[in-house]
Amino acid sequence: MAKYGKRTTAVRAAFAGKSNVTVEDAVALVKANATAKFDETVEIAVNLGVDPRHADQMVRGVVALPNGTGKTMRVAVFARGPKAEEAQAAGADIVGAEDLMEIVQGGKIEFDRCIATPDMMPVVGRLGKVLGPRNLMPNPKVGTVTMDVKAAVEAAKGGEVQFKVEKAGVVHAGVGKASFDEAKLVENVRSFIDAVAKAKPAGAKGAYMKSITLTSTMGAGVTVSVDSATGE
């Protein structure tokens, strides 16, 4: 029988027998048991009844969490001239064109969000194999291919979260920090769930949201009642 440390044993005991709880109860449980020496991220995973191999079942979108993520977002912008200056003024961490492409091709990716003006996409397109697997490829559907780079940079810096279903049919994201007030975490969680619900693709059949799990970086997971989370 496996032996666990005191912290793990205490967490397992706290979560024992608790599943399909309300968002409020899940947040309270996760927050109370996020006892690592750093400010843990509260993470959500939504298991969807879709097969992303089919184009009409792809789920992706963006949501501005009302209370931000608590994470410092590093933003890179592919732009030239006035638009490059606009991006820098808006607070972008890295701005460039072909020079930035060469940096990324060299394996140096020091950013969490990538934005590009439409005219830069022939350059950015060469980075598909590098940025694509990291979910960093600019896409007009989530507002990262745009002429309004100021708004895009400010949104990224202000707590906007992008999501995209993985091969296994799961969407996940960080929705705040354990240090956040419970009410603010609940707001963020509900906003994320609402955004995923609204992104339901035309090809989805049967139950769309199959399960929802909330956890912290080092903590155990607790399942959230889909019905209570979606108001169904």
Rank of each mutant, 00 (worst) to 15 (best):
N188C: 06
A36G: 11
D227K: 10
M101K: 15
Q105R: 06
K157E: 05
G91R: 07
V170R: 12
R53T: 14
A36R: 13
A195C: 09
P138G: 02
Q105F: 09
A168L: 15
E86L: 11
I94R: 10
Q57T: 07
V59S: 07
R74G: 03
V63P: 00
V149E: 01
N33E: 09
P122S: 11
G174H: 12
S191I: 10
P118A: 04
D112T: 05
K157P: 06
K198T: 13
V11A: 15
A28H: 07
E24C: 07
D148N: 10
E154L: 14
V145R: 01
G219C: 09
Q88T: 14
L65D: 04
A79V: 00
T144W: 03
G5E: 09
Y4W: 14
N139T: 12
E182H: 12
V124G: 00
G132K: 04
S191K: 15
V175R: 02
C114S: 07
P138R: 07
A97H: 09
E43Y: 10
A151V: 08
F38W: 08
P140D: 09
S216K: 00
V42E: 05
A220K: 11
K205F: 11
A92H: 03
G70T: 08
A34Q: 07
D181W: 10
E85S: 12
S211E: 11
T35K: 14
A89H: 06
Q105T: 03
Q88C: 10
G68E: 07
G125D: 05
